[in-house]
Computed example of a mutant assay.
Amino acid sequence: MVDTLLRLQEEWGMPPISAEVADVLRKVPRHVFVPEVSLEDAYATDYAPPVQRTGDGLITSSMSAVRVQAMMLDQAGLGPGMRVLEIGSGGYNAALISELVGVGGEVTTIDIDPEVSDRARRYLDEAGYKDVRVVTGDAEYGVEAFAPYDRIIVTVRAWDLPPAWTAQLTDHGRLVTPMRLRGVSRTVGFDRVGDHLASRPDHHLTVFVPMQGAGAHEERGIAVQGDDIALYGAEEPVDVAALRNSLHGPRKEFWPGIEFTYPDRLHLWTAAHADRYAMLHVAGDVLEHGPSGPLARQPVPVVLADDGSVAVRTKRSLGDGRFEIGVFAYGPRGQDAAQNYIDVLRAWDRHDGSMARIEVWPSGTPDADLPTNRVRVLDKPHTRTVLAWP
């Protein structure tokens, strides 16, 4: 598993996992924590074995793919003697953390589902990690009894960051969490800076199951075409019938001569810089046989315009593994949406490709106290999240 992971990271041009994380991945028996799957699946680098499902089959808890776990452990920068809180239990990741912090460290893992936490306790004991604390409770409030923590690692997707997580960090603590930023998912390593959090330059595109409990947030989509096409994150009323008609009508293609680079970073750039923005989700069979021909792979950021018009990002091969970004325009004002989208893409092309700086401030923080180079501020009940670029 570890050798495969290292080889794939080299092939993909990604930074290799640290020697410390590679060592503990080789040591902790992953299959003990998912006995219901085959050894092949347990040790696959990009498979997230389901742990808990609802009655209708929806996955509510899973063991993260080892590639993602390794990345997050390196983001956390764990060391001997640290006190760590893990939010979202499976057992295996807590065992990895326990190995990294050593006998002088402390590991607490919490899950809202008693079946999941009981399972984690059982398999941690079986694997020899009896010192890991397992707590059943709502992680919206952290685990104050064992705070402060040098590190908090969140293994569920957070729509908002509750105040308890920052409050329970040490003054120089670090929080690693998946979060939702205008429809874009990123796993971000934050350092605590006084009363707010500032991102480190190594956040990544990932997918996690959403939080349950007080921090749960249901993202309601707008059904455009049954279960085939849906729009998420639109911040203005949408004329669904007009949008559906636009997608079934003629389209115009625009190819501004921009090469497709850093696609995951471009998602967040678009989300921050486009005003009339949403995410388009398209069923697999509609991708190649859409109402007006092939659509971009889902989900994809789109730019909206009046009269149900929309611009959708796409790409085409240039050969040698290179791609050009294009924009498909639908509807009577589709060209306006496409021009707005192209302006965003050209600004990206002029940019150096560096990561966004993400800062999370308490709700109620005055605009005057936020960074002056901000591109967009996302206001949520607990926080004001600032997106900026160098």
Score class of each variant (00 low, 15 high):
144 E>G: 14
341 Y>Q: 04
87 I>F: 07
106 E>R: 13
138 D>L: 11
119 R>Y: 15
39 L>M: 07
135 V>E: 10
344 V>D: 04
214 A>G: 02
128 G>M: 09
142 G>W: 10
195 D>E: 14
44 A>T: 04
18 S>T: 15
213 G>Y: 04
307 D>C: 02
226 G>M: 12
54 T>K: 12
179 M>V: 00
263 P>C: 01
287 L>W: 08
34 V>T: 12
248 H>M: 06
213 G>F: 05
271 A>M: 13
211 M>R: 10
215 G>P: 05
162 P>G: 11
21 V>F: 07
243 L>N: 01
79 G>C: 09
59 I>P: 13
260 F>L: 03
351 H>F: 15
361 W>H: 15
91 G>R: 07
266 L>V: 02
198 A>N: 10
162 P>N: 11
28 V>A: 10
356 A>M: 10
299 P>E: 08
358 I>S: 00
210 P>T: 03
34 V>Y: 02
314 T>E: 04
292 S>F: 05
25 L>G: 07
376 R>H: 05
339 Q>C: 01
132 V>Y: 05
185 S>R: 02
235 E>C: 04
38 S>N: 00
191 D>M: 04
58 L>H: 13
81 G>Q: 11
141 Y>A: 14
52 Q>R: 15
170 T>W: 01
173 G>K: 01
185 S>E: 11
343 D>G: 03
127 A>Y: 03
243 L>G: 01
342 I>K: 05
24 V>S: 08
382 H>L: 00
235 E>H: 11
131 D>V: 06
18 S>G: 13
292 S>H: 04
22 A>R: 13
64 S>C: 14
105 G>T: 05
388 A>T: 12
46 D>L: 10
203 H>M: 14
168 Q>H: 05
177 T>K: 08
28 V>N: 13
9 Q>P: 02
304 L>P: 09
205 L>S: 15
246 S>I: 06
205 L>H: 13
98 S>E: 14
334 G>D: 10
250 P>W: 04
59 I>A: 13
15 P>W: 08
133 R>F: 05
244 R>M: 01
89 S>C: 14
25 L>D: 10
163 P>N: 07
266 L>C: 03
380 K>V: 00
380 K>C: 00
36 E>T: 02
21 V>L: 12
57 G>D: 06
308 G>N: 06
61 S>C: 12
201 P>Q: 09
103 V>Y: 08
372 T>M: 00
193 V>W: 06
61 S>G: 09
317 S>T: 08
98 S>W: 13
216 A>P: 06
264 D>T: 08
144 E>K: 14
8 L>R: 13
162 P>A: 03
346 R>C: 01
65 A>Q: 15
384 R>I: 01
234 A>E: 01
330 Y>E: 00
45 T>N: 02
13 G>P: 07
118 D>W: 03
246 S>G: 05
257 G>A: 10
111 D>M: 12
309 S>A: 06
34 V>C: 08
224 V>C: 06
121 R>L: 02
70 A>P: 09
125 D>T: 03
126 E>A: 14
110 I>S: 11
1 M>T: 11
337 A>M: 09
248 H>S: 12
82 M>K: 13
254 F>D: 05
272 A>I: 12
193 V>I: 12
239 D>L: 06
1 M>Q: 12
72 M>G: 03
129 Y>C: 01
107 V>D: 04
169 L>P: 06
136 T>L: 05
277 Y>W: 11
205 L>A: 15
358 I>D: 00
140 E>K: 14
